[in-house]
Amino acid sequence: MNANKRATHTDWIDPDDAPELTDEFFEQADEYVGDKRVRRGRPKAGSPKLALTVRYDAEVVEAFRATGKGWQTRMNAALKDWLKTHSPA
Rank of each mutant, 00 (worst) to 15 (best):
A66H: 15
T10Q: 03
P43E: 10
T53S: 07
E59F: 11
L52K: 14
A58H: 13
T22I: 01
H9G: 05
Q72Y: 05
H9L: 15
A45G: 13
T53Y: 02
K36W: 06
K80L: 06
Y32Q: 08
L79A: 12
G46D: 15
K80A: 13
E62N: 10
Q28G: 07
L83E: 05
K80V: 14
R42W: 04
K49D: 07
V33H: 04
T10F: 06
A45N: 03
K36S: 07
L79D: 01
P19W: 00
G70M: 03
G70A: 07
E24Y: 08
A63Y: 15
N76A: 14
K44C: 14
A78N: 12
P15C: 04
P43Q: 09
P48N: 11
V33I: 12
E62W: 07
V61F: 03
D23L: 10
A29C: 09
G68R: 11
R55F: 13
P43F: 02
Y32C: 02
Y56M: 12
D30T: 05
E27T: 12
V38R: 14
D30K: 14
A66P: 08
D30E: 09
R40H: 14
W82L: 11
L21H: 04
Q28N: 09
G46W: 05
M75I: 01
L50C: 00
L79H: 14
V60T: 15
R65D: 09
E62T: 14
F64V: 03
D17I: 03
D57N: 07
V60A: 10
E59M: 10
Y56V: 13
L83F: 15
D30A: 15
K69W: 10
A51N: 14
F26D: 02
V38G: 04
P15V: 02
G41Q: 10
V33E: 03
E59A: 13
I13Y: 05
Q72W: 02
D16Q: 12
T10I: 04
D23A: 13
L21Y: 00
T10L: 05
N76S: 14
F25M: 11
V60G: 07
R55S: 13
R37I: 10
G46Q: 03
E31T: 08
E20Y: 00
R37Q: 12
R65N: 04
A77W: 06
D11G: 11
P15R: 08
F64L: 01
E24S: 12
R65W: 06
N76F: 09
R39T: 14
D16R: 10
D14H: 08
D35I: 00
L79P: 01
D23S: 11
F64R: 04
P48H: 13
G68D: 02
T73H: 09
D17E: 06
